[in-house]
Design a protein around this nucleic acid. Sequence first.
DNA 1: GATGAATGAGAATTCATTCAT
DNA 2: GATGAATGAATTCTCATTCAT
Lengths: 200, 200, 200, 200
Amino acid sequence: MATHSPRSDTRARIVAVSLELFSEQGYERTSLREIADRLGVTKAALYYHFKTKEDIVHGIVATTAAPIDELIAWGHEQTWSPEVRDELIRRFAAGISERAPLLRFFQENQPAMRDLSAGREFRARMINLVRLVHGPEASFEDRLRAAMSLFTINSALFLLHQEPDVPRVSEVAVAPATREEAIAAAQHVALEIGGLIGRP
Amino acid sequence: MATHSPRSDTRARIVAVSLELFSEQGYERTSLREIADRLGVTKAALYYHFKTKEDIVHGIVATTAAPIDELIAWGHEQTWSPEVRDELIRRFAAGISERAPLLRFFQENQPAMRDLSAGREFRARMINLVRLVHGPEASFEDRLRAAMSLFTINSALFLLHQEPDVPRVSEVAVAPATREEAIAAAQHVALEIGGLIGRP
Amino acid sequence: MATHSPRSDTRARIVAVSLELFSEQGYERTSLREIADRLGVTKAALYYHFKTKEDIVHGIVATTAAPIDELIAWGHEQTWSPEVRDELIRRFAAGISERAPLLRFFQENQPAMRDLSAGREFRARMINLVRLVHGPEASFEDRLRAAMSLFTINSALFLLHQEPDVPRVSEVAVAPATREEAIAAAQHVALEIGGLIGRP
Amino acid sequence: MATHSPRSDTRARIVAVSLELFSEQGYERTSLREIADRLGVTKAALYYHFKTKEDIVHGIVATTAAPIDELIAWGHEQTWSPEVRDELIRRFAAGISERAPLLRFFQENQPAMRDLSAGREFRARMINLVRLVHGPEASFEDRLRAAMSLFTINSALFLLHQEPDVPRVSEVAVAPATREEAIAAAQHVALEIGGLIGRP
DNA sequence: GATGAATGAGAATTCATTCAT
DNA sequence: GATGAATGAATTCTCATTCAT
């Protein structure tokens, strides 16, 4: 018998709708009026649940970033090894579909994120994750390899949707595949790149 | 000896300052007032040279994207081979220092770029470049590898500047190096990733 | 005793003040700042009640044009006859004093009205009224007579106020009379002109 | 061999284009940039020929209002009689096709005209013309009749073009006729209305 | 747990006008 | 007889935010 707290269904809906709009249209291009309209409430209602627009971002992170924190916590418990590295990449790829909006939001709204404490904290998380992937004593090359490895996972999903409108030269292979196949491919490439870590 | 045309020194300065501010603070967070103030002119002067804020972005691309167009043109003249691929990556890395603000601007302001014709055109250019790198008949993996390869070049410069403020666990190697060394390292890793193209 | 709804007293005041200023100074020569200042509110308050400046015109029509719509409705219920025609003219003249600002606004701001949907709709109303006055099977002459007949009513009020500053040749009779006398005279002439309808 | 003064062909073109645009789009909705663009010159060129935007209106009147001044002068030379009255109306109707843009401009841009000296002067001319039509010792009714008589002439041309887009009830007679027929009809009605002058 | 009404600050944009060349 | 470059003042409109109810 699940006793999920009944209080603030609205709060959760604000978080969900905001993340959706922020990630689709951008943080600055999404007004509180737009969020309120989508929810069928007034702007003032948003202010009952959140102190500021920035605070909604806090809410988004608090609600959505748990899996990443768990991944980081797990990583900190391990002693680095190539196997741990690969497992980090795999786990990062695992829930990517659900986390995609969050990652997209942060990646595509960097200027705003630099001004938001939630943004800076999220960046710190990602840097931590990168460090866990390359392990201690890493060279600049290795940090770059680790970063690109994780980055590959996000990028795959965007790559999937963004090409159709660019005129395609005939010889280019059409390869979209399904969302799942794309993620599998992304994980594959990410592991390849991760595998380069430690090279001279 | 060279009598460079005196007219529209201002126009060039608008482009330069705008690119700088757009890339540092973001497109939406940079007002025309700010640009005008930096130049010591009025907002109306900007409108003498550019029809809209969006038009300034056009001006930026027209002024700054020539090297990328040349690279694409060069690529189209070649028949794809691993050597051509590597040469594309190397040439892309070559002038990266000067082009960094432009690339940063486009990468970090995606939501705005989707609404700007100059933004969409620039994205098309990048996708073209990726296609030249992976060559014809590419699988989704290969497209991803090509994209990440080029992406590595940009990312290196940001990675260089963005870590200092994240509390560093002692064991992590400090490795920034100079700007030139960072680019050399980025090119190295980019070629590695490019070298993965064609694998099963 | 009557508890008139307290909400949106401001909205009504915006409509009233806007109509007054639009009709006195013209639509384009009246800024929202001016309207706001007169009301002792901020410009943003106007935007709380109306989406755009154009929308205020909508509000004006919705609030003020009811009597004209009723007159049109009444006209549609009648079968045309000289008596109906005269009654239409009389009823049009009846409330003219209150409707004068509205009619003046539309007559003196044609260029703006062509761009405003409320403007085009209002013009359609007036054309309908003209048609009711001349009845079916009308010649071009009759349409002109009907239009001038109604037009006489508006014009009278303007004529009343606009001559004093033009240097008067001594022999011209001074005849303003009171506002009510002017309207009576206008109705008289309007009926005369209406009476010409049907002539060869 | 016509020796039309060669100086300032441009000046004449500015006047012509300005009148066209002012009368079609309105005085305030027509910017100097628009006028300059149509002429293929710069805004600054307009300022070579005219001191201000208002001064262009002066130029328009000076160039176009001569026939009206001649009509007024002629009227002043006559002793009023019903025949003179009718002849004034006929002469006013005579060149109406060419003067239509000027009259439309003044009629549809009243708010701007009140602020322009050329506007006030033109209004004075029209009032003079009205006085000549009703003659001395006129009652308010007569002034109204005279005004509406002349007004009929202008109105006819607008009526001709402005109805097509208003949904027409089937029974209404379609009657446009040609431009010339419309003017003839207008003159006819104007004389009718003028004929009412002097009635009790 | 909300709403209605409002604000203050600021944004992009437009316009008539000026002046050195 | 013009132009190129610029300005100052204004305009419409948007947005995050506040607060009494």
